[in-house]
Amino acid sequence: MSGLLLFLVSMVSLGAIYAMLCVALNLESGVGGLWDLGIVSFFGIGAYAYVIVTAPPAASYQAYIFGFEAPVWAGMAAAMIAAALFALLIGALTLRLKREYFLITTLAFAEVIRQIFVNEAWLTNGVAGIYGLRPPLREAVDPSAYGFLLLALLVAGLAIVFLVTRHMVISPFGRSLKAVRENEALAITAGIAPRRHNLKAYVVAGTISGLAGVFYVWYNTIVTPGQYSSDVTFFVWTAVIIGGLGSLRGALVGGFIFVLLHDILRFVPVSGEAAATVASLRTAVIGLALILILRWRPNGLFPERATVFGGAAPAGAKAMVSHNA
C-alpha cells in the first residue's frame, strides 16, 4: 500500500473524529447559543475514562492503579457516562452565568481538567500518559489493512452521531434550543425554561465529545494530557465557523476541511531543517483560512438554512394574500 494512501486514510480518520466534535459543538453553540470554550474537557474525560476501564494493569514502570482490561463496549459506556456526569456538574455550575462569564469559566474548567490528567498520576500515569493501547478488532485483519478497518469504524461512529444529532436538531427539543438562542425572553413566554434546556444540550454535547474521545484513543493508541489542551477547543470552533455555525452539514464538512488545511503542508517536500518551520506555518494557514471565510463567507461555507415544512395550503390562503397586496 502506498504511503500517500496510508496518509489519506489517516487524515480522513482524524477528520471523522474532528467532525464528531464539530457536530457536538454545533448542537450546543450553533443551534443553541452557548459560548462553550471547554468542549475539550469532555473529549479528554471520555478518552481517559475509556483507557482506565479498558487498559491492562500497569507495568512496573507505570504509576496508574486502575486498568480493568474491560471489553471495548464497557469502555465506551464508561466514557460516555463519565463525560455526561462531568458535563452535568460543570453545566449546572456555569450555565447560570452570563455568556462572557460562561465562556471564560468553561475555558478554566478545561484547564483544571487537563491539570488533573497531568498531576493525578495514580489515575492517569501523569505526563507520560498510557501507551500501547490496543484498538478494537486489531487481530481481525492483517496489520497493514487495519487503517481501513479503523476508518470504517470511525465513519460508522460519525454517521450514527450525525443522525442522532440531526434528529435532536429538527425535533421540538432543537427548535426550543434555537428559540432560546434567538430570543430568550420570548422563549420563556412559550414555556421554555432556558437554563434547564441549555443544560440538556450541554450534557448531550459533552456525551458526544466523550465518545469522540474513545475514537481518538483508538486512532492514537496512546493517551497523554498534551492531547487535550485548549488548542483542540479552538480548532473545533474554527472548524465549525468555517463550515457554518448552526449548520449541520457545515459542522460535518468543517471537521474534514480543518484537518485537510491543518495537514496540507505535510505534502510540501522540504528538507529536514525546514520541516519545523513549515510545521509552525500550519496555524498560520488555519488563521488565513478563517480570515478569508469571515471576510467573504461570514456565515461559513454551508450557512444555516431556513427549515421548510411541507403541508397543504389552507383554504383561503390565496385570497387573503391578494387582499393584503
Partner: peptide, 12 residues
C-alpha cells in the same frame, strides 16, 4: 412542541 420539547429523543 410544548408537550414534546423536554426530551431530545421525542419524534421530530
Amino acid at each position: 412542541d410544548r408537550d414534546r420539547r423536554s426530551s431530545p429523543f421525542s419524534p421530530a
